[in-house]
């Protein structure tokens, strides 16, 4: 009944560090990040791609890590919320979320940080509407999104060097 688990060895760059880990062939990245690599900042709200709490970047592409097989990241680079701050220095998105009170319970926050960072790298001048659509896959039940969107637009401004 208890089949031997055929584990795969995967090598990837996780938050800038080269890492090797074992995973089963059907295991999703979110699970491996949390359980094998102890990167619990990546949250699981649904496991079906519907909440965005598990958002990470794979080779700079914003994805739901619950909808990526861990085996798929072989040779790729993964960024989780733990890798967003530069040492002690917060990313502007993180800083602005704090300043605007853009989190209440904070369970959606890691996903929002990752998704907003991806947005601002992709589009330094997002309009409110663009920010709202880009972040539509990041469910937040606490804030009504108001302060999240304000924080993201403010972070965009900071990253542009304070220009309007």
């Amino acid at each position: 009944m208890n089949k031997p688990l055929n584990k795969m060895a995967v090598q990837a760059t996780i938050n800038g560090e080269s890492k090797a880990f074992l995973c089963s062939p059907g295991q999703v990245l979110a699970e491996v990040l949390r359980d094998e690599l102890e990167l619990i900042g990546t949250k699981i709200g649904c496991n079906t791609g519907d909440c965005g709490a598990c958002s990470v970047l794979v080779d700079d592409r914003l994805v739901c890590s619950c909808l990526v097989l861990a085996a798929e990241v072989e040779g790729k680079s993964v960024l989780t919320v733990e890798g967003v701050a530069n040492g002690g220095e917060l990313h502007p998105v993180q800083q602005k979320l704090l300043e605007h009170g853009g989190l209440q319970c904070g369970i959606c926050t890691p996903g929002v940080v990752i998704a907003a960072k991806a947005l601002l790298e992709h589009n330094p001048y997002p309009t409110e509407e663009q920010a709202r659509y880009w972040l539509a896959g990041n469910l937040c039940r606490c804030t009504g999104y108001d302060k999240i969107i304000r924080a993201v637009l403010d972070a965009a401004k900071t990253m542009r060097g304070g220009a309007a």
Partner: peptide
């Protein structure tokens, strides 16, 4: 088709 995350994949 879906969120930005889904469109990415």
């Amino acid at each position: 088709i879906g969120s930005t995350q889904i469109t990415g994949r």
